[in-house]
Nucleic acid binder design. Structure first.
Lengths: 180, 180
DNA sequence: GGCGCAGGGTTACAGTATAACATTTTCTCT
DNA sequence: AGAGAAAATGTTATACTGTAACCCTGCGCC
């Protein structure tokens, strides 16, 4: 983990070299905010944020990276929180169903949501070098994230229920590193 | 195949009840056009459209549906064109790499490209009832398919190399059928 | 106390994909 | 035509991803 090719962590606030979504920020605060939002929503909506669910969310929040299900499972096993695949998939299902995490389809992997308080249509930028993921913010109700999709759906009489919008490429930090 | 829940095929030109992408059209012509475009591009670019590759593309073109790799493999086996998974994956890799087919990430499945002659950013509408897929047309170089993604990438200094843009929902035909 | 239900444990398996190596075909160059 | 390189295909084995089905426990509720 500490050998991840993830440069750009120089503000000195985080204890580890965890990836931070292509830019410096106070990751401790970022995590705390997300957890607080999730707690609030669970309280408000009667969702049960059990110890396993909370812990897995914390794990996902550690870095702005997509984790594969079996990676999550390994972490759970290491902490005695479940031994078999269904345990991990059930937790990830809870988190994604409620918008606390998202699945990156092209990677078969999962990433913590960075603004779990809002209803939104997620879209992602994924760096193939450092594996970092940033999630863009688009609120539901206003203009949707993908005008092409909306126009095509409109024209075809198609009712959109879910969207998968992902970009894969190279982040600014890794571009700079490559050119050096 | 003939029991697929795919209504709307009433123009009487196709021999089977294959799904046709949410609307009536001359599917024989649609297939012929696509094959001709692919042949032209292979000739122009020195790509080898071997018998297996050609046949798998034909199979994918039979319907506007996404086929899973092992479905493709079964068809190949039935025709003596390959027995093991790598055979299917290699053909699908050739077709997707060259833009003759696309992978629908959220389905782990593949669909023939409906306009293989043009360079384009594909985006898809996938019906969860009839499993039909339509691909929208957006040429590269003009305005890209997804403004949100472009704006976010621009702001982050992210270089986009590939996109995954998919909508999942219900097509007009299945909506009509559901409401009946 | 009994009931219903969500959460979680466990086994077994289904579905997706690729590494690695052998063989054959095709291309190219002389 | 023949040698050598490169591309395509065949084959075995295995890794990775995901789920069905069943059981058991703990908790709220009448």
């Amino acid at each position: 983990m500490s050998s991840d090719p993830t440069p750009g962590q120089t503000n000195g606030r985080r204890p580890t070299g965890a990836p931070v979504g292509f830019s410096n920020h106070d990751h401790g605060l970022c995590v705390a905010d997300a957890m607080a939002e999730v707690e609030a929503r669970c309280a408000a909506e009667g969702l049960r944020l059990t110890p396993v669910r909370r812990r897995v969310l914390e794990i996902l929040l550690e870095s702005h990276r997509a984790m594969r299900a079996y990676e999550v499972l390994e972490r759970m096993q290491a902490e005695g929180l479940g031994a078999q695949p269904p345990a991990a998939y059930r937790v990830l299902d809870f988190l994604t169903t409620n918008g606390f995490a998202h699945r990156i389809e092209a990677l078969n992997a999962f990433v913590a949501c960075t603004h779990p308080g809002e209803h939104h249509v997620p879209a992602f930028l994924h760096c193939r070098i450092c594996d970092g993921v940033v999630e863009t913010v688009t609120s539901v109700g206003s203009v949707q994230g993908d005008s092409l999709l909306d126009a095509a759906a409109q024209a075809a009489g198609f009712r959109i229920e879910a969207r998968t919008v992902e970009a894969h490429g190279i982040c600014s930090i890794c571009r700079a590193a490559e050119e050096a």
